[in-house]
Simulated assay, not measured.
Amino acid sequence: MAGTVMVVDDEFSIRRLLRATLERQGYRVVEAVRAADALPLIGNAHPDAVLLDLGLPDRDGLELVPLIARMPGVVLIVVSAREATAEKVAALDLGADDYVTKPFDSEELLARLRVALRQRGGEPAPPVVQAGAVAIDLDRRIVRRDGAEVHLTRKEHDVLAVLARHAGRVVTHDRILAAAWPGDHDARIEYLRIVIRNLRQKIEPAGEVGSVVANELGVGYRLLAG
């Protein structure tokens, strides 16, 4: 058994799709339709992960995010039709491990779930993170593309290291700024965008912007590991 996943969603078709998808991968699935049912059921079922819709009939799902995020060992992925940037940032800042927008690709959702479960389980980032043809050696601060070393500035290394330690997951602008510019309250998203642009020019193939460092519009960035 791969673990237990709770699906909190009031749409029967979504619950049915997620149940079929997850059970094929060996997960045990429990379901809740309302927020009022979800919290007690989490306490009883002890799920490894919760897939949470925000548009619940009795309560805004966003209000549940910090409550679930505080539960030890539980991965929380928001799966919602809400596309507003503010909603995504709020969910992530409140403690969600990831945010998937409906309609979603089942394989992508499974991949994000696996990444979040590994990281929440305390599995440290490997010393070398692979992202396509790019190998990021976190301990030695060495980056190679197709085997050849890529020379990065200190700030480019700092930003890439943050993304590599959370490979496969979206990292918000604020979290990257706090990690790469610690203590610098004047750091701005514009600085980050410049670093990302220069970083992409060095590690991504020409004409393939976003193939290694993906932009989550208005939210942050994600390193496409694998």
Rank of each mutant, 00 (worst) to 15 (best):
M1R: 13
A2Y: 01
A2H: 11
G3E: 11
V5W: 05
D9C: 10
D10Q: 06
D10E: 10
R15W: 11
L17T: 14
R19V: 05
A20R: 15
T21R: 08
L22I: 04
L22W: 02
E23D: 01
Q25M: 09
G26D: 02
Y27R: 03
E31P: 00
R34F: 06
R34P: 00
D37V: 00
L39D: 04
L39H: 05
I42K: 03
I42P: 01
I42W: 02
G43H: 02
A45V: 11
P47H: 05
D48F: 00
D48Q: 14
A49C: 02
A49V: 01
V50P: 03
L51N: 03
D53C: 02
L54T: 04
G55N: 15
L56N: 03
L56V: 05
P57Q: 08
D60S: 12
P66L: 03
L67I: 13
L67T: 14
L67A: 11
A69Q: 09
R70K: 14
G73C: 06
V75C: 03
A81L: 03
E87Q: 08
L92I: 11
D93Y: 00
L94I: 01
G95E: 04
G95C: 05
Y99K: 02
K102P: 07
P103H: 09
F104G: 07
S106G: 06
E107C: 00
E108R: 13
V115W: 10
Q119K: 14
G122I: 04
P124D: 04
P124C: 01
P126R: 08
P127D: 14
P127G: 06
P127F: 10
V128T: 12
Q130Y: 12
Q130P: 00
A131G: 04
G132T: 08
V134H: 01
D137L: 01
D139Y: 10
R140W: 09
R141V: 10
R145H: 08
G147S: 07
G147A: 08
E149L: 09
V150Y: 07
T153F: 08
R154T: 13
K155N: 11
K155F: 05
H157L: 15
D158A: 15
D158V: 07
R165T: 13
R165P: 05
A167R: 12
R169W: 10
V171N: 07
D174Y: 13
R175H: 14
A178E: 14
H185D: 15
I194Y: 11
I194C: 07
V195L: 10
N198R: 14
L199E: 06
L199Q: 06
L199N: 05
P205N: 08
G207C: 06
V209A: 15
V213F: 02
A214V: 00
L217E: 10
G218L: 02
G218D: 00
V219T: 09
V219P: 01
G220T: 05
G220D: 02
L223V: 07
L224P: 02
L224C: 04
